[in-house]
Design a protein around this nucleic acid. Structure first.
Lengths: 344, 344
DNA sequence: AAAAACTGTGCAATCGTTCCCAAAAACGTA
DNA sequence: TACGTTTTTGGGAACGATTGCACAGTTTTT
């Protein structure tokens, strides 16, 4: 801010003390007498003194803020994660700086580097769907920047990670489709390189195996751009339909809504005949038609846990060497046949 | 960051120059000889020198970053606005810091003050629905912090403002309901204190007047918390239904989805009989059932225009005294009878 | 040839804090 | 009283960058 606020120097001058005394009094250090503390605190209160975080950052080489990288804030899952992050961060006197990668590796890298240069104390990141090369993160990590991955995590990077139980979530959703009588179940999913894509594919396969349904590679469609381009989705749907699936299991928020949209747009006559189960944290699913079964990730909790781990790394006195990967359970919300479908 | 990067001092030492010379060379000042500049630039490049933004902020008392306050990022309208803001900010070498007020005045104030203390160069803000007292913003503004309001703007504050054409948007939506034969049209809206609530109410009234439909105060329900509490919404819906409305015009994103949800939950048998028109920027409306007519705000553009105005204020050499209120047109998206309703 | 002007560089202060190191004051003990 | 401790305070150097001012050395002007 280009305008004047009162500083520690002003207080020192006004009270006839030195800046060091004032600084210590404000931080409630043991060396300062209670009397002096009281005077300083009272005066600081009176002039509405606020420590300048910029100056403090420069001096302490830390900023009490943590950086967040997600692909899109306009995504229910990520905005819920962010709320979880904020809840823990604020409680521990950290602030957060949010950046969007828009699923672009280049943008992700730029954002991370800018955050790093602004002295963030730690980084929470869900990789973009494009990202494969994470050497730039390795460099920062090696230089001492604590990093915790969530949702989309690399497998060859030793640090804390927090994810949903993607395997079980997918298994449950696929099993649900099978138990409601479906036999030709397609799987629409994200970029093949993402960690959760792999895990979800495994869950899907496992459910098929359990019920002795043969896995058919053709029924699996990967979307490199994660539903960011509707053309990509429509293309995938167009390829799937000739195989006459009676169910589709979809593995991401954006793909789930995008797929239904594509179905309604290109093949409205079959949209309501295919059972759909998909990952999504949208709080509007109850309004959707056709209605669907959803796998909900514990987004808020993922944010909380990731932040707790990050703060523990930041505040650790000695380098952390034991890392954990926390896996949080998803929730299967079954399609509500009675609502949505009946009254239209 | 707590780890070492090369500084201007390191370069100076390595090259046998003074820090001032290095600083000037890096900023391409005329006083420095081309030869020296070349040497410095080459070396800086080699050691991958990055100016420390924290140090620069402290010295220059500005940060090349702008603060954003919205109520919720998990709101399509706001996340689209943010994307618009980012597009202009990045193009002008500013970074953005996003904060959420969660419709709480207290939180809003805390966030603004934290942003201010972090030397943001300007502020873009949509007031929380609770906010009535904006004296704290006045103080900051008086001290020199440029502020641009968008979407929810105060009427007694002289600065740039950017809003959608709320009057016309509401008028169009209400007229649409009238033209499709509805005569008892309820209006569900936000906190009475918000600027856009007033404007939208006027548009609603004007449309009724045009078609000689008497305005009935009982048909208007205000929601203080803007749909953040489902109980509030359900209560409003419960009060409206006995009046037998055949149409409802809803004036905000969250209320629109919340109202449909409440209708389906509490009175599923009438949910499909009442025509709904509402403000929303959700990109999922095509999936909704019952389907509805929507008023879409030019969110991305609002963000862009607001940011342009803010940057012009920040970079103005002399205090700005001429302010404008930009009003951008909304778009009416009529309900698609053929989709959504037919196949279920 | 002396004075004036211009070039290119360095010194040192500054932004607001924190913190090491010393020094002063207060106290206790012999 | 003199000395050693403990408690409380102040001086001043950082942190990394910018910039007004001074000062050489060179060039131009008169």
């Amino acid at each position: 801010m280009r305008f004047e606020t009162s500083t520690i120097k002003d207080i020192a001058k006004a009270l006839g003390l030195s800046t060091s005394t004032v600084s210590r009094a404000l931080r409630d250090r043991y060396e300062i007498s209670d009397e002096t503390k009281k005077i300083v605190l009272a005066y600081a209160e009176k002039v509405n003194y606020r420590a300048n975080p910029i100056a403090r950052s420069l001096k302490e080489r830390r900023s009490y803020s943590i950086g967040i990288i997600v692909s899109e804030i306009a995504n229910n899952f990520f905005s819920q994660v962010i709320n979880g992050i904020e809840s823990i961060a604020y409680a521990n006197d950290y602030h957060v700086i949010i950046s969007q990668s828009h699923e672009s590796h280049e943008q992700e890298k730029l954002n991370v580097e800018h955050l790093a240069s602004r002295s963030i104390d730690g980084l929470l990141i869900a990789l973009s769907s494009e990202t494969q090369d994470i050497d730039y993160l390795r460099d920062l990590y090696a230089k001492g920047l604590p990093i915790v991955f969530f949702d989309r995590v690399p497998d060859n990077f030793e640090t804390h990670k927090v994810i949903a139980n993607n395997f079980k979530g997918s298994f449950d959703a696929t099993e649900h489709l099978i138990l409601s009588g479906k036999r030709t179940i397609a799987h629409l999913t994200n970029s093949e390189t993402l960690s959760n894509t792999k895990e979800r594919l495994e869950g899907y396969k496992a459910a098929l195996a359990k019920y002795h349904i043969e896995f058919n590679e053709e029924l699996v469609k990967f979307c490199q751009h994660g539903g960011m381009h509707s053309a990509e989705l429509e293309h995938a749907v167009k390829q799937l339909l000739p195989l006459k699936p009676d169910g589709i299991f979809i593995s991401s928020d954006r793909l789930t809504t995008g797929c239904i949209m594509a179905l309604k747009k290109t093949n409205p006559e079959v949209a309501h005949k295919i059972a759909i189960a998909g990952f999504t944290n949208s709080n509007l699913v109850e309004l959707f038609s056709p209605s669907l079964t959803t796998v909900k990730q514990p987004a808020f909790e993922i944010g909380q846990v990731a932040t707790e781990l990050l703060i523990s790394m930041i505040e650790a006195k000695r380098p952390v060497t034991e890392f954990e990967t926390k896996i949080l359970d998803t929730e299967l919300v079954r399609m509500q046949k009675n609502l949505g479908n009946r009254f239209l």
